[in-house]
Amino acid sequence: MQSTRLPLSDCLDAAVTAAHAAAAILQAYSLDRGKLVVDAKMHNDLVSQADRESEEAVIGILRERTPDFGIVAEESGGSTGGPASWYIDPLDGTTNFIQGIPQYAVSIALVAHAGAIVEGDAPLDRDVPVIGVVYDPNREELFTAMYGVGAWLNEHRISVSGARSLADSVLGTGFPFRDFSFADQYMPTLHRAIKSTLGVRRLGAAALDLAWVACGRYDGYWEMGLAPWDVAAGTLLVREAGGICEDIHHRDPWPISGYIYAGNHHTAPALDAMIQPHMKKD
């Protein structure tokens, strides 16, 4: 099969355009949350028409601009395909949004499939995120990243923090909230982190947690039981900001399973070492 070179600059522009379109819908609904129709997909997993309409806006733009790419979206599903696939979370932090807590974002990532060409002439030998966009409409902070080029917050280049140990670190995390089957693995890690760091924060929007690692607000982050669209964009942000963002199970080339740890070159290995003794082995 012939390899396809991905037009990354055009893809980034499409993702930014789509993120702004989704955010406009979210912010319009945020002004009158009392009219939101909210459904429960499963225990502690909510969806509103704001999620659905913002996702439709994103998909419409991306399908028009990149018709040959696959699309995997939180609310409408979809499938991977072509040389690359979009992973879309139109509202990361739905519960925060519904409650009026201004900590939520639009997250859009492009994952190139093995065989695609993104730099030089050599095709990729594995799937990897190559475009990442996380937009926080409350702070008007646009986080963007492009494979091999770097990461930015609005117009400014960003990098991960310089913390050299967990003892000097503030960490982000997320508690089990929907699937509690891994709670016995997660809770000991939280206990360790509380006792051995400067502090642990749980703000309820994984895409922003990762963006905050990328710009140095958090020194590290870990969570379990997420979905691919929660972490795809943030993974690239952290990596292009000079950090490490990997699968806790050390199986996948990016944390597609939703078991994730991230940080700089000191804190990420320390987080991994903190987590591994508590993970069940296959």
Rank of each mutant, 00 (worst) to 15 (best):
H266L: 06
N44K: 07
A116H: 08
E155P: 04
R5S: 13
D136M: 04
S161H: 01
E53W: 07
V128Y: 08
G82N: 06
T235W: 14
Y135E: 00
L91R: 10
G242C: 01
P269G: 07
S9P: 06
K35P: 00
R239N: 03
V111T: 07
A73K: 09
H113V: 06
A109E: 09
E141V: 02
L12E: 06
I101P: 02
Q276V: 03
G100P: 03
S30C: 09
V149H: 13
E119A: 13
D252P: 13
D121R: 14
A105S: 14
V231H: 11
K280Q: 14
A211Q: 00
G70N: 03
L203S: 00
I131C: 15
G243L: 12
L203V: 02
D51W: 13
G172Q: 03
L153V: 02
L198S: 05
C11D: 09
G77D: 10
A109I: 14
S181H: 05
P83S: 02
A40Y: 13
D184H: 12
A206W: 02
G93F: 01
V58C: 07
R139G: 10
Y261W: 15
D32M: 07
D247K: 10
E55P: 11
V213E: 05
A183G: 04
H278E: 09
A50S: 08
T189A: 01
D252M: 13
A262C: 08
R251E: 15
A167R: 07
P90W: 15
V130Y: 15
G263M: 00
P255K: 12
D51E: 08
L210N: 00
D282E: 15
P228I: 00
K195A: 14
S54D: 14
A112F: 07
E53S: 04
Y87H: 01
A227F: 08
G78C: 10
R251C: 14
V72S: 06
V133P: 13
G120I: 05
T267A: 05
G174S: 11
A28G: 09
I260Y: 07
P90I: 12
L236H: 10
A214G: 13
A84T: 00
A116Q: 10
L12I: 00
R201P: 03
G148S: 03
A211N: 01
L142E: 07
P269M: 13
C11Q: 03
G162Y: 09
F69Y: 07
